[in-house]
């Protein structure tokens, strides 16, 4: 009981710190840092949606970058070719990401485990190939530039105003994901994660629940992609490549899967490290490699899982 109280207090402290960084600090920070926070929020949203799959359903999808890219490219193409605004592109981005997931899910979910990993990753690579090579439609290697922030219903050309819009959007979306996880549907997913056969016997449609989770997660990633296109005003094949897909996975895994907060911490760490380290050194890739290796080697439950890991280690040592 005491432990629970403590973690409850910790959660409030964490929430207050997050509110401080996201809402209070930006007006006094330099624009560069504000835009980093905005980017971290967008990636955080995508990583949180991926956590529905990795942490709550045990469907480790490596293809999440594909939905993000589909959402981003849909927004970029509609915006530059049809001069469509944000609220017009958002539903289309969500729809396209969702449809792709609906097709992929039918195939990928026939497999499990490592097979599932590989199929989702290969599918994501096919999307990368599409945006990299379909020059007429996606700009190929040059990507798509000239995206304008129109149709928000507000003037969002400033860094700060866009940041607050993103924050509001982020809070609503992550709140929705939280509600989904806490809903009977989310509880069923956790049940399936822990024992699919038990849930099957209890009369739940295991396949349908997983399939729905797969599509819902993709839709949120598509949303993140759409917002990203307007944030960055540029979308390129790098946003769809293997490294990007793996980075989302790393954010979830290094923050702590199955926690909803962990992926956001992971997103902040990666975004800040990447952009700050790139200023001082050309060897960002080396640093990222080290993060992957250290996360894989020493933090199986992510940063949020470290205290528990230490406790267990202590217990094991005391037991000896």
């Amino acid at each position: 009981m005491k432990v629970q109280n403590k973690s409850f207090r910790l959660a409030w402290v964490g929430l207050a710190a997050a509110a401080l960084v996201i809402l209070v600090l930006p007006p006094v920070l330099p624009p560069f840092y504000v835009s980093l926070i905005t980017l971290a929020l967008i990636y955080g949203l995508v990583a949180t949606s991926l956590d529905i799959l990795i942490g709550y359903t045990m469907m480790p999808s490596l293809g999440h970058g594909a939905y993000f890219a589909l959402g981003a490219y849909t927004a970029a193409i509609m915006n530059t070719k049809l001069a469509a605004g944000f609220w017009a592109t958002l539903p289309v981005s969500i729809l396209i990401a969702g449809c792709f997931a609906a097709v992929l899910g039918l195939v990928a979910m026939r497999a499990a485990g490592v097979y599932f990993l590989m199929i989702t990753l290969a599918a994501a690579m096919c999307v990368w190939g599409l945006v990299d090579q379909w020059v007429d439609f996606t700009g190929g290697e040059n990507g798509m530039s000239g995206i304008t922030r129109i149709g928000f219903g507000l003037d969002l050309n400033g860094t700060l105003s866009f940041h607050y819009f993103t924050s509001a959007f982020y809070i609503v979306c992550v709140g929705l994901i939280y509600l989904i996880i806490k809903s009977p549907f989310g509880r069923t997913l956790v049940g399936i994660r822990d024992s699919a056969s038990r849930m099957q016997v209890l009369g739940y449609n295991v396949w349908l629940h997983k399939y729905m989770a797969f599509i819902i997660a993709a839709m949120f990633a598509g949303m993140g992609g759409c917002l990203y296109a307007y944030f960055n005003k540029f979308v390129g094949p790098d946003d769809a490549d293997l490294a990007q897909c793996m980075e989302f996975f790393l954010m979830v895994s290094m923050g702590g899967q199955g926690t909803l907060i962990g992926p956001n911490i992971g997103a902040f760490i990666i975004v800040f490290l990447k952009n700050l380290a790139s200023i001082y050194t050309d060897r960002w890739v080396m640093i990222l490699a080290a993060i992957y290796i250290l996360a894989a080697r020493f933090a199986p439950k992510g940063i949020l899982g470290l205290p528990e890991q230490l406790r267990e280690k202590k217990k094991a040592e005391a037991g000896k």
Partner: peptide
């Protein structure tokens, strides 16, 4: 070797190795 049997950790590790080789 030490991660034998843990597919997600192994995959992250091979990604780290890839980036290391690349750089």
């Amino acid at each position: 070797r030490e991660l034998s049997g843990q597919m997600l950790r192994q995959m992250l590790m091979t990604m780290g190795i890839t980036l290391l080789i690349q750089d």
